[in-house]
Design a binder for these strands. Structure first.
Lengths: 163, 163
DNA sequence: TATTGTTATACTCTATAACTATA
DNA sequence: TATAGTTATAGAGTATAACAATA
């Protein structure tokens, strides 16, 4: 637009546009997969994604987690964790256990039924993920993993010329 | 687990696990960026992501879109589009216009104020995206775009050995 | 009859804030 | 005082289904 636009500015505009297109594609790919998984979890197991995620957190920590730790890991506020745990407890998939050391707190863990149910769901879930990522060959998946690692860590492997 | 497990099965298990890790990383990267954008849109412009998305759809189609077309493009049901358009119309950012050809339908488009407001939001939005993707150099972003294109299209560039 | 859009309802997730019990 | 967790409230987004007007 500017008559004084330099090559660098032109290039910067083009790169900005490319970043925006990349973000829209990243978002649409992820959303499409997530929606598919969400729908299948609901249809086949009658469970929502946040509940599945909470159970997955507990599955990784057999000794259980406190409400506040769950809140931190799931990045949602405490009140929400309470309601999700309430629902899962009603279905006897998780249990609250008193802690002798601190009577304000307690430990949430999977019940035996919860472990069994989660195992079936996790197996199906993994199958869906494999299926939905199948358009990418194994070496492409590795490459994608590496690129996303760079994006996540915030550590560029190549320095950028533009400030 | 199985005593008869062949090398292929072992490899398949390893690849399945890698796919799952890739999916979790894809999800966390995307969610992190999306949450940041959502939060900034709310704080700086008092708008939600679905409303921003609807305005973005309209910005691309100056002649406007019908409710059903908006519903299709945003992949949400008609009732939801009605409520989002209602809110934006109340803020005078979009307008409903009668269509002579079909009196059941009408055209939704950005108002002048809506175009102005959207321009400011879109510019900020693009800047955030550039910032959040900055850990990746330009050539890495191109690579990521290509890989996601393969994932999206469902057309593997390499055939897979496993059925 | 089919389609366009609205309305009503219900549910989940979310954040905020006030609250209780314990440390 | 501070912390762990709960409760209450409000709001957004979503799907479903019944509905009115028009084609």
């Amino acid at each position: 637009m500017n008559i004084d636009a330099t090559d660098m500015e032109v290039r910067a505009h083009a790169e900005h546009h490319a970043s925006l297109r990349l973000w829209l594609r990243l978002l649409s790919c992820t959303t499409r997969i997530e929606d598919t998984i969400r729908q299948r979890l609901r249809e086949q197991f009658g469970i929502t994604l946040p509940r599945f995620d909470l159970m997955a957190q507990l599955e990784r920590e057999p000794q259980g987690l406190s409400m506040s730790e769950l809140s931190r890991r799931m990045m949602v506020t405490g009140g929400n964790v309470t309601s999700i745990v309430d629902q899962l407890e009603k279905e006897q998939l998780v249990q609250r256990q008193m802690q002798a050391s601190d009577r304000r707190s307690f430990t949430v863990s999977l019940t035996e039924a919860g472990r069994t149910a989660f195992a079936a769901m996790a197996q199906a879930h993994e199958g869906w993920v494999v299926e939905l990522l199948a358009p990418l060959a194994a070496n492409q998946q590795e490459h994608l993993q590496a690129l996303l690692g760079t994006l996540k860590s915030g550590t560029p492997t190549h320095s950028k010329e533009t400030k």
